[in-house]
Amino acid sequence: MNQIILSLITGIFISAIAGYIGSLMITKRMALVGGPLGHLALPGVALALIYNFGIFFGALLSIAVGAFFIWLFSLRAKLPIESLTAIVFAAGVAIGFLFLPLSHAEEALIGDITRVNLFDTILAIFLSSFLFIVIRKIYSKLTLSEISEDLAKSMKIDVRKYNLIYLTSIALVAAMEVKIVGILLTAALLAIPAAASRNFSRNIVQYSLVSVLVGSLSAVAGIFVSYEYGLPAGPLIILISFGIFLISLIPARKV
């Protein structure tokens, strides 16, 4: 199949799900979480590039190991999770750079969607669709728990369970994102479309929908520009969504 079609399909699905879950992340004020998660992926991405297996699996493995260490340290250290995350992700990046082959550095750092294969595309379609169904199920419950956790608990909503599902989904989305925007820009794909959408929207339905649209539109435009001018797609996608964010500031007003 034509490479550009594979790139487009993969890009649309991953950016769409990133936009969707990103809207929930902004609601929960966790817009930056995608950053450290992406960085945590580096050692795994390096391994995948050396041994030539899927970047997604390398990224996911290394995010899981990183999350495990954060959890392990949290049992021993009297530090907030946020500080432990900073420590673990810095160590992850350092380890990754020790053996990341220089010839592949660009692909690892800012992604390369022009090199996706059919398997990557099918994985992106299925995993994104599955995550969409999952997030849709937990979306309103997590929104309510953000308004008041006590209120959600009093309505017998198991907030801890839903948070775990939500965090696992973010890790999966971040791992998929590495393919298109690399480890450096994962936070951007999660945060910017949602932030732009926040400025356009007056209710949850509009908010999540516009966020998905901004994400996928940026991906399509970024990939086309990339093919046309031979520039890397990842940064282009992010810059285009940033452009939409700037436009969204025009009608935005604080409630």
């Binding site: 609601t27 929104t143 953000e146 308004i147 008041s148 006590d150 209120l151 009093s154 926040r198 929207s201 007056r202 209710n203 949850i204 509009q206 908010y207 604080k254 409630v255």
Partner: peptide, 19 residues
């Protein structure tokens, strides 16, 4: 049993696009 907690403030809502 339904509950209305004390800290259910307008500020919480102003941060969300919710009708």
């Amino acid at each position: 049993v339904n509950y209305l907690p004390q800290r259910l403030s307008k500020e919480k809502f102003s941060l969300l696009p919710i009708s």
